[in-house]
Design a protein around this nucleic acid. Sequence first.
DNA 1: CGTCTATTTGAATGTACTCAAAAGCGGTGG
DNA 2: CCACCGCTTTTGAGTACATTCAAATAGACG
Lengths: 194, 194
Amino acid sequence: MNCDTIISNISKVVQLNQNEAEFLESILISRPFKQGEVIVKNGEPARYLMFVNSGFLMTYFTDKGGADHVIQFASEGWWVGDIHSLSKETHTQFTTKGLCDGEVLLLPRSAQNQLFEVYAKFEHYFRITFQNSLLRQQFRFIETYSQSAEERYQAFIAAYPKIEQYAPQKQIASYLGITPQFLSKIRKKLAEEA
Amino acid sequence: MNCDTIISNISKVVQLNQNEAEFLESILISRPFKQGEVIVKNGEPARYLMFVNSGFLMTYFTDKGGADHVIQFASEGWWVGDIHSLSKETHTQFTTKGLCDGEVLLLPRSAQNQLFEVYAKFEHYFRITFQNSLLRQQFRFIETYSQSAEERYQAFIAAYPKIEQYAPQKQIASYLGITPQFLSKIRKKLAEEA
DNA sequence: CGTCTATTTGAATGTACTCAAAAGCGGTGG
DNA sequence: CCACCGCTTTTGAGTACATTCAAATAGACG
């Protein structure tokens, strides 16, 4: 199991010594995935926080009406997981699926608490990480409210040029909060303008 | 300065001993505010994380077009603050204003780090707190995408019956992501149906 | 009472959606 | 190799939700 990415990622926030890095490596579990494979399914309890070691994946939830809503696309270096399900031990409402072949590193819930207790640095790291996620989430929210669908689509392809190539349009539309038909029309319009 | 609310709030997550509680009290600063008073203004650096000890307040940001967007209403027991400005030491884009007379407890940025270093419990508490904020934010996002403006308004008055009495309709409309005119029409329709 | 801002109302418009159907695309089996 | 199936994407027509603009009304404050 190659832990270079996760260690270098964590090192941007806290400096890890040999022991700490080894302890982390000892509790992580490698979980390779294939394109289209469901990694965590809606209805299961969320057992892990997942770090994307390679590849792309997406997380979506299914509402009462049966419609899917893409919450997040994630690429190398991102944390993914249903923190609600993790902290309240309920069943997750989210499904996580691979957009191409790749690998996630699993941090089991039990090991998580252990990690925090033994090494306060990790608690610090995750505090910062959640803080940053909150920021991004807030930013995305603001974006949604102050921009049109067309502007949001343009911001999306600028921000995630790689993911755009792996995710089907349908899911991108879902992420942007519009119908696939409407996204198709936006794309047509942009292509004509160019 | 009355710290009962904040201590009892923190105690729901971590058990504080005498020393820890006293240390916390020693670094908090009381900041009373009046109705309509601007507590933190757009353009200033964010110097504090704020805990609402009493009263109601709101946070909004002003976009490039000059339009305000209400991000959050907060009542007793909530944390408020621009974590982006706090962590990156940039100037905040957000304005925080009192909706009625009240009091916030200020946790200065410098003291924050001190708090985390001396007592890991607080780092834990804030990790959990940010995690919960992230959840709420995610939930609000989902709600926005899967419900109509009318449904969102009804959910709002159900969730924040008190705030509805203090916040002008204009700001509620902004929070819901709609125009005040449209909110007025929704209210009329709901009143007619009842 | 006059001024300022918030709210209501109405008409016209626009953005994004629904429904329906056609076209494109990848895989599978004969 | 091609025909067929299932799924995604495109296209078009009609519609609904929400906005803009404009003006009237109501409330708050000095």
